[in-house]
Write a protein that binds this DNA or RNA. Structure first.
Length: 198
DNA sequence: GGATCGATCGGCT
DNA sequence: GCCGATCGATCCG
């Protein structure tokens, strides 16, 4: 991958697990009134399909996550616990629900913290007003970066979805092994194995 | 380091 | 009414 180029829609229009893997090492950028706020993505989670009991899409295409059923390359931002925001990039083809939650970044701004999905939004100034923004044509987007080798990737169960039965144990959380910015709750994780991501 | 708890409210049941 | 894709403070060991 090259460096500093905005990711095109085709990047998002792929299986969610691949998008979650390839977003590691890229940079999430938000232009706020001409001011660049950005950070390197070091941790992601995949939410895939209408049957994933951990995904907001489980309630159907008329619920809160209707946007997950729409075209890829769009921001899905929601409020959680009445006080925090979470940022997702919509994936998959139009009509099939999928999204990648950005769980942690290494902020470009010194002193900013991005270890956790709500802190990511706080550091980049992302809130509900960003819901539905087009990542291909708006001030909220992702820049590509140097390729991350499989050996630097770890995977493990998603966080905070224990209610989802067997879906909770799937290793759909991915992070960079050497990053000090990965959010809390991380366990040791296992080596990246693309064959296990389903 | 790990476990527990309060804050706070939109959206689904 | 209930509960959550969270965080920070606090307590315990």
């Amino acid at each position: 991958m090259q460096h500093g180029l905005r990711l095109p829609r085709e990047f998002y229009a792929r299986p969610t697990l691949l998008v979650a893997r390839d977003l590691l090492g890229t940079t999430l950028v938000h232009d706020v009134d001409g001011e660049r706020r950005a950070g390197r993505i070091v941790e992601t989670e995949a939410y895939v399909g209408p049957d994933d009991r951990a995904s907001h899409a489980r309630v159907g295409r008329k619920g809160r996550a209707a946007i997950m059923y729409g075209p890829p390359g769009v921001a899905y931002v929601y409020v959680i616990y009445g006080m925090h925001h979470c940022f997702n990039a919509v994936t998959e083809r139009d009509g099939y629900p999928g999204a990648v939650l950005v769980r942690a970044i290494q902020p470009e701004q010194p002193g900013a913290r991005g270890s956790g999905p709500a802190l990511v939004c706080q550091a980049l100034g992302i809130d509900r007003a960003c819901n539905g923004l087009d990542l291909v044509s708006s001030g909220l987007f992702v820049e590509d970066g140097p390729a991350v080798p499989d050996a630097e990737v770890r995977m493990g169960p998603r966080v905070g979805v224990d209610y989802a039965g067997g879906w909770a144990s799937r290793p759909w959380r991915l992070w960079l092994a050497d990053s000090a910015h990965v959010s809390r709750g991380r366990k040791s994780g296992t080596a990246y194995d693309a064959a296990m991501l389903r």
